[in-house]
Nucleic acid binder design. Structure first.
Length: 256
DNA sequence: ATGGTTGCGAAGCAA
């Protein structure tokens, strides 16, 4: 199974790039974030034309997540049905080809300290509680998306410049580790150990061309899937050219 | 140097 995740930063603005990317990457499952579309406005026909079923969870202007699958799409669940849903439409789950897939858009956190930062940590806690009650680590589980945390300093363009900033603080990284302790594995790190491999670059100040980025888009998989990971890549080409998202898609191949 | 750019939506906010 080829599973991918991409923060598209508005599916309406990005649809031509997403269609182009699907056409050459041919993922079996594509998790998207920041669709910025209400479910009623989701371009389902565009995905249908490419052979994909879609499940979306969006309330319009901000946030919004979706899963596109060409290997089946069953038992769709939207949100936590809990307090963290107040932070927007940021979670959708579905069973695709025998894998319980989650597309997540973790809150940014903004300032440290701050109420949005605290809410981000609470969102992580609710994600862990959700996984604990809906899946088992011995199941085939994938949690894919924009985690808005760089797992360690290899994932940061200049760790010294970012000390104390959101995306790199201890409490945020502890939340990622708690997901790992539950049983998830950062699939990209099964394939690459080196630093300076990023998935997001600020639009501003030519950061992409200056290699000033972060790796915050992750495919986290349970051990039964981790054992089958054969390949991973961050497709930097999708960050180039006309009207790119500020994130690149992350793709993982898994023998199931 | 608290800069710079994009998306949404029509001014300012979020990222």
């Amino acid at each position: 199974m080829r599973i991918a995740t991409w923060n598209v930063n508005s599916l309406n603005a990005r649809l031509p790039r997403v269609e182009e990317w699907i056409d050459y990457a041919r993922p079996d499952v594509l998790c998207m974030q920041e669709t910025k579309l209400a479910d009623a406005a989701f371009p389902s026909m565009a995905f249908s034309a490419l052979g994909y079923e879609v499940a979306s969870h969006g309330d319009g202007r901000w946030n919004g997540v979706a899963i596109a699958s060409r290997v089946g799409l069953e038992d769709v669940a939207r949100g936590f049905e809990g307090p963290a849903d107040d932070q927007g439409a940021r979670l959708v789950a579905a069973t695709c080809g025998g894998v319980r897939v989650h597309s997540v858009y973790v809150p940014n956190g903004r300032e440290v300290p701050g109420e949005h930062y605290d809410a981000k940590l609470a969102w992580y806690d609710e994600l862990l509680a959700y996984l604990e009650r809906t899946s088992k680590p011995t199941d085939k589980v994938a949690v894919c998306g924009d985690f808005n945390v760089a797992p360690d300093d290899r994932d940061v363009w200049d760790p010294a410049a970012m000390v104390g900033s959101t995306h790199v603080t201890g409490p945020e990284r502890d939340r990622l580790r708690a997901l790992e302790e539950w049983g998830l594995v950062d699939a990209f790190r099964l394939c690459y150990a080196q630093d300076q491999l990023f998935s997001w670059w600020d639009y501003r100040a030519g950061n992409f061309h200056k290699h000033m980025g972060l790796r915050i888009d992750l495919v986290m998989v349970s051990r039964p899937l981790a054992e089958g990971v054969t390949y991973a890549v961050i497709d930097r080409n999708a960050r180039k050219g006309k009207q790119p998202s500020d994130h690149a898609p992350v793709l993982v191949d898994i023998d199931i």
